[in-house]
């Protein structure tokens, strides 16, 4: 397995602030000022109560693997990186985010494994948030 490519994400006017923060190594989350729920993915309203006032805070970068798969073969720009792991990580703040698990043998990944966030620069003014096993 070679290291993963770092494709630049699609950025919209609603996600620009989120992605800008990743360039500084910060993963930000929104919190609804009305119902207090933590929102994922970034948007301009709370999808639980439809309030349009959300605050922003820096997340802990900690979580556990909620589910994962080892991709054995692909035709996209990850081709040379197979096998690699795509996962949902449940952040300690609540949301489950899609991501990659890196810096470990794909076969060693398990559901429930504690992980911490790392950032990989895309070279386009933002960084991809990925996770590695805690203690690596």
């Amino acid at each position: 397995m070679s290291s993963l490519p770092n494709p630049a994400p699609m950025v919209t006017s609603s996600s620009q602030a989120f992605w800008n923060a990743t360039a500084e190594g910060r993963f930000t989350l929104q919190r609804c000022t009305s119902c207090d729920v933590v929102v994922w993915f970034p948007r301009k309203h709370c999808p639980d109560c439809w309030t349009e006032t959300l605050s922003v805070f820096d997340a802990s970068g900690r979580g556990t693997v909620y589910s994962f798969t080892i991709i054995r073969k692909v035709a996209n720009d990850y081709k040379a990186a197979t096998p690699f792991v795509v996962a949902y990580v449940e952040l300690s703040e609540g949301p489950r985010v899609m991501t990659n698990i890196v810096d470990c043998d794909p076969e060693s990944v398990t559901v429930g494994m504690p992980v911490e966030m790392v950032f990989h620069d895309t070279g386009e003014g933002n960084a991809l948030y990925r996770f590695r096993p805690v203690g690596n």
């Binding site: 630049a8 996600s15 589910s67 994962f68 991709i71 990186a81 795509v86 949902y88 990659n100």
Partner: peptide
């Protein structure tokens, strides 16, 4: 609106996503 958060991780087919389930 979810595209930027789901299409950068290397998934290329429905199998990758159903495998998570």
């Amino acid at each position: 609106p979810e595209t930027g958060f789901e299409t950068v991780w290397g998934t290329a087919s429905a199998a990758h996503s159903y495998a998570l389930a």
